[in-house]
């Protein structure tokens, strides 16, 4: 089962309005310091980058490190200036990318 994501972008906003954007991904964020029941070290398995872009321009970027809790959740604010698509991309350590997007209409 692929890692699923949850995002929240308001469908509409007034020009200049500051809106809250929320994004979450299902991911174990294995920090590499744990061992399984057999005593074998569980290898690191984390998301390394999270990027949010608005109308093709990058507005938010996070570099994630081991030691973050599972299922990382970000909430931040965006000044709505024009209609466009808000895109989210999570990059895992193996370079695989999970994406999600939602349009926002600015009136």
């Amino acid at each position: 089962m692929a890692f699923n994501t949850r995002i929240r972008v308001p469908a509409t906003a007034k020009a200049g309005e500051i809106v809250e954007i929320r994004a979450m991904i299902m991911h174990p964020m294995e920090n590499g310091f744990r061992v399984d029941t057999q005593g074998t070290a569980i290898p690191v398995d984390i998301i390394t980058d999270f990027v949010c872009s608005y109308d093709a321009a990058e507005i938010f970027r996070v570099r994630l490190e081991p030691g973050l809790a599972a299922n990382p959740y970000f909430s931040f604010f965006l000044k709505a200036t024009r209609s466009g698509v808000v895109e989210f991309a999570w990059t895992a350590q193996d370079e695989s990318v999970t994406t999600a997007s939602a349009p926002i209409e600015v009136t």
């Binding site: 979450m24 299902m26 909430s75």
Partner: peptide
Amino acid sequence: EFANPGMLWVEAGKA
């Protein structure tokens, strides 16, 4: 409703 991490599984279950 959004921040509750359990909802990730509920949504996966919906799919």
